[in-house]
């Protein structure tokens, strides 16, 4: 399991696990408004880094788009370092 970010206000904690297929779970305080944007940010980042077969959990405390992307990129880098 690899993590990046935090549960502080305006941040998000990304947890990444290996999986048999790609699964994305979003738990956001603004999910009712921005679920799709968060989902797109995660999908885009996974695609640009060519990452498949991972389980992504986004615990979002109101992070902006670039913060979600940055945190996910670090989680991916940390995973790649270990794999």
């Amino acid at each position: 399991m690899w993590q990046a970010g935090s549960k502080e206000s305006n941040d998000c904690l990304i947890t990444l696990k290996k999986s048999d297929k790609t699964k994305i779970k979003i738990d956001s305080i603004v999910g009712h408004l921005f679920h799709n944007q968060i989902l797109n940010a995660v999908k885009d980042t996974l695609k640009s880094d060519n990452i498949n077969n991972v389980e992504v959990l986004v615990e979002d405390k109101g992070a902006l788009d670039y913060t979600i992307r940055a945190r996910l990129k670090v989680a991916i880098k940390r995973m790649m370092k270990d794999v």
Binding site: G5, A70, K77
Partner: peptide
Amino acid sequence: KDNARNLVETYLLTT
């Protein structure tokens, strides 16, 4: 450090 570096980088590139 990696989190901070990536956050600042993404902020600069997208803001």
